[in-house]
Design a binder for these strands. Structure first.
Lengths: 337, 337
DNA sequence: CTGAAAGCGCTTACAG
DNA sequence: CTGAAAGCGCTTACAG
């Protein structure tokens, strides 16, 4: 059971190995019938290209660079796993680098990935998706790149995201439909676009059910647990207590639950709490937090496909779809009723 | 600035490319002087081998397999980042696979990595380090492998770990030295060796300071937040409250803090809480948890080196050191005084 | 201890 | 639209 190679297919098809190579790389100049025959044969023989040979003979590196702020961030590692998987099937490899907090490092990291590692494509993870200098550089050197959940200049690249607005709307509506009337919200970091989208989804869901969102039920947080603590202390010391809190992420939701427990409020009987992101934390604490699951793995898989599959070629094809909105999942658990 | 290759070094050194290749691969049969000259030259020219060429011409795959239970587990992703980094410098690639809870899948995953992916080496992450069938298979096919923090049959492979016993001793002693006299412990999952080691470290630290550890101060947990909740409820309803709790991991420590807060106990003024692992959770909650940081990244780097650097050759060299104990770090934060 | 030859499986560039 | 030739940078196997 040795590996099948181009030559094997060529022999069976009665053509030269070059023709097979062209079919495999989706190059245009092959007769339609020949193409079909070869494609069928390749599938039948379960052909997969030898990455090393390909890399050695071509000018491509078969490396995809991923740039992020912290490699240990939860969403980054989830993304990484999906990316690693898809790369394995497409014969690519991942190089990942982090700015480690210094957002200024982003530009030099991107430069290094381009010039040293010579990546064939790049993925920008939030919040590094919106640095004008980086976008300008990438466009200048004409390296295909995909951004995950970008905020600005959406047409600058292909991008993959989910509908934060609608998800926030949905989870708020879940609270409304299960009978909550006084729903508070803790807004996320004010510099990130998603905070705004989630806040807007919350507001619109309330409005379309003719519920009020009085200003004292809106607190500004910044996505940290501590900011959630501060916000929840305020919300839970109001004369008229909210009967539900929608926090813009799970960490702030966990903090809100902790304050509620301290105040001897039963969750979810006296107050429901919901979060966003479905991080580990959401199912670590007790009760487990109802939240929104981002399709991070699928986002990663799609991003790699966009970068590595010739039919998606980002460079030459102006007709290619740039915007990819992936479905999310509402995870209802014990923190809300 | 094009890449230097074997031929370039060979020309400068006045030898054949073969000799250079031998030096690079640490093969024995090269004259000492020639070897030195070539090594110096290689360093000077900043030579690094072309992975693709190497892979294509050799029978090696230059893939290292990592087997774990959940790729999303926090410690796995931290490990992964270190491994990825070291692989990049050594010209190897990572393939990672998970049993996703079904421990029975471990054997088939390992088989696939051996026969399909043809990995050159393998890393077993806990708790998959101690499956007799897997160990037997790996030994039979003679594939080098490294285990991280194994529990049983320590001589079966090289392994990398930290000193859980001593770390537990240290953090308990920290509590003692800062004046705590009634220190409780929540034991981890009883099936994992580390729970025992940490428990033992706790006991010995108390004993050597002539402090008591009465049975009602010892609770059995299982590393989950929920088990921490249950254990802490019991500890904090005792007539004589403990003035400190050492939980065998951060999740249980976070749970203990939550119960303490509910009971209106100030942390750390009325009770200190410490954990183990330094997961994200430890610095997410407030106050942040004092804990032990495992050197996961260094463990990964070392494991990859053991597997990929010829001087560590695990297969042929019986004199190679099998046991590698890496230093940990005690992280003191706001949850203890 | 050292080297000349062949080949790994592809792609690039050229020829028809 | 199709193919024959050369070569990517290494290693393996053989010869001395």
């Amino acid at each position: 059971m040795s590996k099948v190679k181009l030559k094997d297919i060529a022999d069976k098809a009665g053509v030269s190995l070059m023709t097979v190579s062209r079919v495999m790389n989706n190059e245009p100049k092959v007769g339609a019938k020949t193409r079909q025959r070869i494609e069928a044969l390749a599938k039948e023989l379960n052909y997969s290209p030898n990455v090393a040979a390909r890399q050695l003979s071509s000018s491509k590196s078969y490396f995809i660079g991923i740039v992020c702020e912290h490699v240990n961030a939860n969403y980054v590692s989830k993304f990484l796993v999906g990316a690693l998987k898809q790369c394995r099937t497409n014969g690519y490899h991942i190089v990942i680098d982090e700015t480690a907090g210094e957002i200024g490092k982003a530009l030099s990291i991107v430069k290094e990935l381009i010039h040293e590692t010579k990546v064939d494509g790049m993925i920008l993870l939030p919040p590094l998706t919106d640095i004008p200098e980086v976008l300008a550089l990438l466009k200048e050197v004409n390296i295909p790149f995909v951004r995950i959940a970008p905020d600005i200049d959406l047409l600058a690249s292909a991008y993959v995201c989910m509908d934060d607005y609608q998800a926030a709307y949905d989870i708020t509506e879940h609270l409304v439909k299960s009978g909550h009337k006084r729903i508070a919200h803790i807004i996320g970091n004010e510099n990130q676009g998603v905070s705004r989208l989630r806040y807007q989804g919350y507001l619109d869901a309330l409005r379309s059910h003719r519920l009020l969102s009085p200003p004292e039920y809106i607190e500004q947080g910044d996505f940290t647990y501590k900011s959630g603590l501060v916000a929840a202390e305020k919300l839970l010391s109001l004369t008229e207590l909210p009967d539900a809190i929608f926090a813009s992420n799970d960490e702030m939701a966990a903090a809100a639950m902790s304050v509620a427990h301290k105040n001897r409020l039963d969750i979810p009987e006296q107050i429901s709490v919901v979060g966003f992101d479905d991080t580990e934390l959401a199912s670590t604490v007790w009760p487990r937090i109802s939240t929104i699951r981002q399709p991070l793995k699928d986002m990663a898989i799609l991003a790699i496909k966009l970068l590595t599959e010739p039919e998606n070629s980002l460079t030459n094809n102006p007709s290619v779809v740039k915007r990819h909105i992936l479905p999310y999942q509402v995870c209802l658990r014990e923190s809300s009723k």
